[in-house]
Structures are given as structure tokens and as C-alpha cells.
Nucleic acid binder design. Structure first.
Length: 534
RNA sequence: GCCCCCAUAGCUUAAUGGAUAAAGCAACUGCCUUCUAAGCAGUUGAUCCAGGUUCGAUUCCUGGUGGGGGUACCA
């Protein structure tokens, strides 16, 4: 049984005494200095809530638990619980089976779209994208592990001023002229200019900026796709803004809003009214007749609703947080359920090189690309690094330190634990053990030390749920470092392969199989490899 | 001005309102003839300030202080 399954079962039994309050029951991992397998604060909560004596609640719950074969003891309000080793045996067998044992049926119906990165197609991907990509991809993996159907999408703003400016910049590069001051100065356009076809001369003669824009966008998207692939991130769909216009969706959205009397004209522009002053009024159509990004973005989000998603998650950088109220207001005014829409904000990454904090600017061409970072370190190191931080961390990325640390990164600590286990498994085969066939502790009774490390893998499920609750994968990374620590320490203290004791060897190989599967799964979820040899 | 985020060890970061606040780096002391020393054992070391809520606050609320970001008929 997994912790969740045990919890559900106990809750059901507790209903007899506490009816709906039984839902408040939960199991937690006890702190390090407590030896128990699990603990619960149920007695504290319920005695307080229903003005009962804590002893009374305690005796009821311990009856139920002991009927299930669990020993209990009271400890300053908490109830500590001890499992029979059968619980762990079954759990380890489940985790090594490779099946998705953490899937919950109620998650299966929650069709989720996760939109992230969505960088403008005006240049290669840089560090901020690395942060968003790590977060989004890992989160999607974790959600899938829990049963959510997740669809990953990348939105491409291939329309608008910036695209025109991109075209102008490329044409300038092509003609060997000065790039406009407001244009894109990065070297990548020089490279793209070299790839321009023969007809480009004609485009330039006729001043067909759009042709240059399209060429640049195609090339850049190609690079961005390669960058994402290098980073181990694949999207189910790349949604082009131009699709919205081909389908006339922004105009339809505008009509819908007018119909709902949510639009007013002022100074020649069309504005979205705001209810309850959630935000200022916002322009939908400018006085020059052009649609704003906001209107187009509303149309884009409308498609997410129309495509039948129950949970619409966007990952945005903190520089866009001010944009949330207007999106929510717009969605609400379209008559859509804004509760389905969640924006996950991650704080910006600034770059430190020596003592200098670099300000990144795509237009000025001064930025550190994702590709360069990955090539200078490794995909594993970068993904692990970004996944270590919570989205709310204001991260200063020290490039020199990152390069240096890529050799002393906790990543290797975790990977090393996996490789060590693989090596032990191999060695055991030479000593006539067959790890594949081992699926229980046999006659061996797990020691306190064995249990300590088993306990760690047992609580993996809680970590995954926490990641979804917080919409952040960083708990996994912390967990993996702790798990690897437990293993390394266990390894030092306990001889795994002991030819004089077949029972203990088999039991410990069994435990190691569980640890190995857990580490591998955890690394896989955050897009990091689990090498068998290091 | 208003809005969002942050403040934990010398540095970079963890901690569903729970029990003795956890790691890495840096410093120091030990451990490789035994399953991988990319490791282990140990020492030093921290919750910005003032109130409040709570049986219990690093966590929630209010007010400070100090940083980052936002506040366009840009995208």
C-alpha cells in the first residue's frame, strides 16, 4: 500500500466515530529523531475541534489502527504508528514494478494544458527560458505520474511590431546596413542573413519586410525547437498566433465582449471595462485600429477553453505578473470560468559574471543563451540546478560558479547513489544472487537501519502531491538529495552482499531495488538521466 | 504612490501551521588491502525588526526596514 491508500482506508474506518471529520485524518512522515513509520496529528485536531478529551480520540483511533495490524504510541499529542514489514514489502514490490502506482482516478478527468516558455520568436532561448522550461516540463511529468492528462503547449507570437522589427533588422544585416536602433542586434541575425535565398535580393528591392520577417521567424523557431530538444523538453503543440488571425478569433472575441457590454469607446480606442476595479481599463483595439496583444491573447486563451481543458496553467515570468488581473477579468467577461485558469509566476533570473550583474536584453544582443549554458555544463546539471529552486526564489545565476559547481553539483551525489546501487547489483550476480528474482525480505526482519532508508522511499508519493499542490517540482530535487544521503550513509554502515548471510543479502538487495527505482523515477520526472556507471 | 515577490548558517538554497530548522559550497578533524572516496563520520554556524492569531508560527495577519520586479493605445 502507498501512504495514500493507507490514509484512505483509515479515513473510511474513522467515519464510524467521527463522520465527516474523518477527512481531516492524514499521515505524515515523522521527524528524523522519531523512530516511528508514520505519525498523525488527528487527535490534536479533533479533540480541539469537537472539544473532546485527547485521550478519548486517541483510544478510538488506536483501536482502528491496531485492527489493521499497526502498533501505535502517543507522543505529545501526536500518534506514532509502526507498520508490520509486510506494508513495506508490498510497497517496494509496487515501486519496482515500474507501474504508475500513484495515479489517482479523480485526476484522470482533469484535462490540463500547461503553457510555458512561449518566448518571442525574435532570438534564441536564454536563461529565463531554462527556468520556465525546467519548471513546466518537470511539473507536467509529475502531474502525469499522478494521473493528470497533461498537454504541453508553446505559444508563438509570430505577428506584430516586434516581428516587423525583426524583419527590418534581418534586411539590414542582409544589405550590410546598420541595424535600426530599436531592432535586434544579436549576431544570430548575421548567421540567418547568410542563409537567405537568392530571391531575398528581390524582397529587399521591393522593401518586402514581411518576407524577411517570415524567414527569420522560421529560422528562429527551428533553433528554439532544437534548444528545447537539447534541454529534454518536448511540446505537444506549438501554437502560432497567426492561426488566431486566420480564424478571425480576435474579432469574434471582440464581438462577444461588445455583446456582453464589456467594451467602451474612448479617445478613438476600444477598452475593456473592469468590474469591481480589479484593474484599470485596458485597451483592446488601439485608435489606429490595430488590435492589442491583450485582445489576441484573450482569443488564444478562449481556444484553451474551447479545446475542453479543465485546468489551464500558464507559466509566466515575474515581469508579467501585472498582466494577471486583466487576463482574469477578460476571461470572466467572456463568460468563462476563471477558476480554471491558473498563472504560475516564477521570479526572474539575473546573471552574475564576476562582480557584474548583467541585464539581459534580446534587442541589444547581450544575453546568455540556454544552448551555451548547456554546452558549457550539461543538460542534467542545468535542469537539476533550476529544479532545486522554488519558483519564488529570486535567483542570481552566477555563471562562473555554475560552471565550477557543475562538478560539485548535488546532482552527482544523487546520480552516484544510483550508479553505486547498479554496481552492487552487478556484483551480486557474480556471487550467485539474482536480484531480479528477489521480491521480499524472506525470513529477514528489517533492522532499524533498514527501515530508516525504506521509510524514505515510502513517502515519495507525498512529495509528488506536494509538487502539484504548490505547482513546483523543486520538492523532488530536495527529496532526491535526502534519499541519496540516506542511501550513502546506509551503504557505509551495512554490508549489502554478505556471502555468509544469504537472508540479509537477499533482503538488502530487495531494499536496494526499491531505492534504485525511486531515484530513477525521481530523476526521470525532472528530466535528468540516471547513469548506471559513473 | 499603488501592486506582486523575497529576507533562514560566511555564501547559494530547503522546510503540507507541528515534535530537536535541512542540504550543498566554504572552514576544521578523522576514514580508502573489504560491495565505486563523485562517498562516510564528526566540529563550527542561521529564522530582518515590532506586534497579533493559535495548544503550537520560519510558515498565517498587521505595521516597519532592506532588496528585486511591475505599473503603455509594447509584445
Amino acid at each position: 500500500m502507498t501512504p495514500f491508500e493507507i490514509e484512505s482506508k483509515i479515513k473510511e474506518l474513522l467515519r464510524k466515530y467521527f463522520s465527516n471529520d474523518a477527512e481531516l485524518f492524514s499521515l505524515t512522515q515523522p521527524p528524523a529523531h522519531i523512530e516511528a513509520d508514520a505519525s498523525t496529528n488527528f487527535a490534536i485536531i479533533i479533540s480541539k475541534k469537537n472539544k473532546l478529551k485527547i485521550e478519548e480520540v486517541y483510544s478510538k483511533i488506536s483501536n482502528i489502527l491496531s485492527e489493521q495490524g499497526f502498533k501505535t504510541e502517543a507522543a505529545s499529542g501526536f500518534i506514532n504508528i509502526f507498520f508490520p514489514s509486510k506494508i513495506y514489502r508490498d510497497y517496494i514490490n509496487k515501486i519496482i514494478s515500474g507501474e504508475k502506482i500513484f495515479v489517482k482516478d479523480y485526476n484522470k478527468n482533469k484535462k490540463t494544458i500547461l503553457e510555458f516558455v512561449s518566448a518571442n520568436p525574435t532570438g534564441p532561448l536564454h536563461l529565463a527560458s531554462a527556468s520556465a522550461a525546467s519548471m513546466g516540463d518537470s511539473l507536467s511529468n509529475i502531474m502525469k505520474e499522478l494521473g493528470y492528462p497533461v498537454f504541453k503547449e508553446y505559444y508563438v507570437n509570430n505577428v506584430g511590431n516586434q516581428i516587423e522589427m525583426l524583419g527590418k533588422s534581418l534586411m539590414a544585416r542582409y544589405l550590410g546596413q546598420e541595424v535600426p536602433e530599436e531592432g535586434y542586434h544579436g549576431d544570430y541575425l548575421v548567421e540567418i542573413a547568410k542563409k537567405l535565398p537568392f530571391e531575398a535580393k528581390e524582397w529587399a528591392d521591393k522593401n518586402e519586410i514581411l518576407k524577411f520577417s517570415q524567414f527569420a521567424v522560421n529560422e528562429i523557431i527551428k533553433t528554439q525547437k532544437e534548444d528545447m530538444e537539447l534541454f529534454g523538453v518536448d511540446f505537444d503543440n506549438w501554437f502560432y498566433e497567426s492561426e488566431l488571425h486566420e480564424k478571425n478569433l480576435p474579432n469574434l472575441v471582440l464581438e462577444k465582449l461588445i455583446e456582453k457590454k464589456a467594451v467602451e469607446e474612448k479617445d478613438g480606442a476600444k477598452w475593456l471595462k473592469m468590474e469591481n476595479s480589479e484593474d484599470k481599463e485596458r485597451v483592446l483595439v488601439k485608435s489606429n485600429g490595430l488590435k492589442t496583444y491583450f485582445l489576441n491573447d484573450l482569443a488564444y486563451h478562449l481556444t484553451k477553453y474551447e479545446r475542453g481543458f479543465d485546468w489551464i496553467i500558464d507559466i509566466w515570468g515575474a515581469d508579467h505578473h501585472g498582466y494577471i488581473p486583466r487576463m482574469k477579468a477578460g476571461i470572466k467577461m467572456l463568460g468563462l470560468d476563471e477558476k480554471k485558469f491558473t498563472v504560475l509566476i516564477h521570479q526572474l533570473v539575473s546573471i552574475k559574471k564576476g562582480d557584474e550583474i548583467l541585464k539581459m536584453s534580446k534587442r541589444a544582443g547581450t544575453f546568455y543563451t540556454l544552448r551555451r549554458l548547456v554546452e558549457e555544463t550539461s543538460k542534467d546539471a542545468v535542469r537539476f540546478f533550476f529544479t532545486t529552486r522554488s519558483p519564488n526564489t529570486h535567483l542570481v545565476f552566477d555563471i562562473e560558479l555554475a560552471k565550477k559547481q557543475s562538478n560539485e553539483n548535488p546532482l552527482y551525489y544523487v546520480q552516484y547513489a544510483h550508479a553505486r546501487i547498479c554496481s552492487i547489483m552487478e556484483n551480486s550476480k557474480n556471487k550467485n544472487f539474482n536480484p531480479e528474482d528477489i521480491n521480499s525480505f524472506g525470513n529477514y526482519e528489517p533492522t532499524r537501519d533498514d527501515k530508516k532508508v525504506i521509510k524514505k522511499i515510502f513517502w515519495f508519493e507525498k512529495i509528488l502531491n506536494q509538487c502539484v499542490k504548490d505547482l513546483s517540482p523543486h520538492h523532488i530535487t530536495t527529496y532526491l538529495i535526502e534519499l541519496a544521503g540516506e542511501f550513502h550513509s546506509y551503504y557505509e554502515r551495512n554490508k549489502i552482499i554478505d556471502e555468509t548471510n544469504e537472508n540479509s543479502t537477499r533482503a538488502r538487495l530487495f531494499i536496494l531495488k526499491g531505492i534504485k527505482s525511486s531515484i530513477k523515477k525521481g530523476l526521470e520526472l525532472i528530466g535528468v538521466s540516471a547513469p548506471e556507471r559513473m
